[in-house]
Design a protein around this nucleic acid. Structure first.
Length: 523
DNA sequence: AAAAAAC
């Protein structure tokens, strides 16, 4: 089978050849002829199967006749995440070199001006995430009645993300006699219903799941204590011990942990970036770009990076957390060992993870091999750790809700709050040696405000910004730092300084004014 | 136990 057999136009074929492709993937071979013929298509395919080109190429072929009118896009592609949308845009740019098309990307987190200009000029191709698309629609910036081809990509993921009502609404806004190309990795009942309601006599094409990652990915588990600093230590040790590490993604379950782990790795001198959904969009794009280019070796990420992102050739995946949903594990480790290359996936496992780990091993029907001794799950230890963590969690949610409320009313104060708490956290963050030697640490349970800090986006240029360095450690002024000690490693606060202090605006918390006691155990 | 997505 060759691309030239699929009915693509000459100019699209030339672009495909220029990009160096000759043989279509199975999903491309099956879907493209139907799409070119104008049929509605349901494509059941995972990411990494060449699905994007399966709709981009026929669309470019079909777009060759006709012209876009202002504010009336001719085609609309819906994607669940901003990064995926941007990636699809890149594909359209790459394959449309011989076609003069206006391509517009409508995603959140960036200015409207540019997007408005492109809409006014008339978009042949409109790639969007649902929220921003509907935002433009409600502002009267665009009409969907001229859409000739509608693409719904990653439909099952849209379902997970609660986008289905938006998708239904958008489907209703598009004219009746358009062509729909619909892609999903799985077909749960809700997705099935969607296709029955909105597709017209579709052809269904399905490609086998790509061989399970297990084939090319060496999977390993490693035990760690449940404490965050212990997990970070384990992570660093695993990164250091990794063989042939070219580049790696470190996955965390929570955005907060992405930020913390990122800062920790920066402080330990790693070449690292961070990626999660609360980051500023420009930072997101810049980080992803730098990682793709190889300027960054490590990327700490939430599951925003788990699926679909086209990052070729990652040598290692580190799971800082055991994912809550077993399928996410498969997606995460699928970032490595691509295209037949070998890859390594190491997951940190603690007492808290028994249930989720067994769900993963059941899903992949493999007992993953341990590095060193396997964990021995101890219900008692788990109960202790869970009790503590859920107490922290509750506090955290309450304080965060409060902080968000404050922000709505008084943004400036809230901003100040964030900055100062970040400084405290950055200063106090890493001091494992000292803190572990302390026998009692009442401050940990009593001081949930470290958790309460609203999300801040990690910045990769942190080191270059002196104002973002940890706040100077005032204790150092009274307590000379001896040679060989880490100067910035202010011990975790070892005195009880009363109720949580969130902002440092006018109030200097007692712990900053108190003389520092030096732990006797430190040699 | 989370993440993702509009201001």
């Amino acid at each position: 089978m060759n691309f030239s057999d699929l009915g693509l136009s000459a100019s699209v074929m030339a672009a495909v050849e220029a990009a160096g492709y000759t043989t279509p993937t199975p999903i491309q071979a099956e879907a493209i002829p139907h799409a070119v013929a104008g049929r509605d298509v349901i494509g059941i395919a995972q990411t990494g199967t060449g699905k994007t080109a399966a709709f981009v190429l026929p669309m470019l072929t079909l777009l060759e006749s006709g012209r876009a009118r202002a504010r009336m896009p001719r085609t609309l592609i819906l994607e669940p995440t901003r990064e995926l949308a941007a990636q699809v845009e890149e594909n359209f740019v790459k394959y449309s070199i011989n076609n003069n098309l206006n391509i517009a990307l409508l995603i959140g987190g960036v200015s409207f001006d540019d997007q408005n200009r492109k809409l006014d000029r008339g978009a042949d191709v409109l790639i969007a995430t649902p929220g921003r698309l509907l935002d433009h629609f409600e502002r009267g910036r665009l009409l969907l009645t001229g859409v000739e081809i509608l693409v719904i990509d990653e439909a099952d993921r849209m379902l997970d993300m609660g986008f289905i009502p938006d998708i239904e609404r958008i489907c209703k806004l598009v004219t009746k006699n358009h062509q729909t190309l619909f892609f999903s990795a799985t077909m749960p009942p809700e997705i099935q219903a969607l296709t029955e309601n909105f597709l017209n006599n579709p052809v269904q094409v399905e490609v086998a799941k790509p061989a399970t990652a297990a084939a090319t990915v060496a999977q390993r588990l490693v035990v760690s204590g449940t404490e965050d600093y212990e997990k970070r230590e384990t992570l660093r040790a695993q990164i250091a011990a990794a063989q042939d590490l070219k580049n790696a993604i470190v996955f965390c379950n929570r955005k907060r942990d992405v930020a913390v782990v990122f800062r920790s790795l920066v402080r330990h001198g790693f070449n690292v970036g961070a990626l999660h959904g609360d980051m500023d969009q420009r930072a997101r794009m810049a980080t992803l770009d730098a990682f793709k280019k190889g300027t960054l070796t490590l990327l700490v990420a939430s599951d925003v990076a788990a699926r679909g992102l086209d990052i070729p050739d990652v040598s290692h995946v580190f799971n800082y957390d055991v994912p809550i949903h077993a399928e996410d594990y498969v997606h995460r480790i699928g970032r490595t060992g691509r295209a037949g290359r070998s890859g390594t996936a190491v997951m940190i496992v603690t007492q808290d993870d028994e249930k989720h780990l067994s769900a993963i091993e059941k899903l992949i029907t493999t007992d993953i091999e341990w590095i060193g001794d396997p964990i021995v799950f101890d219900p008692e230890a788990r109960k202790r750790s869970r009790g503590r963590k859920s107490a922290e969690g509750k506090e955290s949610r309450r304080s965060r809700a409060k902080a968000e409320g404050d922000e709505a009313r008084a943004p400036s104060r809230s901003r100040r709050t964030r900055q100062s708490t970040e400084a405290v956290e950055a200063t106090a963050e890493e001091a494992p040696r000292q803190s572990r030697s302390r026998s009692s640490r009442p401050d940990r349970e009593a001081r949930p405000e470290r958790e309460a800090r609203p999300e801040r986006e990690p910045r990769q240029d942190r080191e270059a910004r002196p104002d973002r360095e940890p706040r100077p450690d005032r204790s150092a002024e009274r307590q000379p730092v001896r040679a060989g000690e880490r100067p910035r490693s202010m011990p975790r606060r070892d005195v009880d300084d009363g109720p949580a202090v969130v902002g440092l605006g006018d109030h200097v918390p007692a712990f900053l004014l108190r003389p520092v006691r030096i732990a006797k155990s430190a040699n």
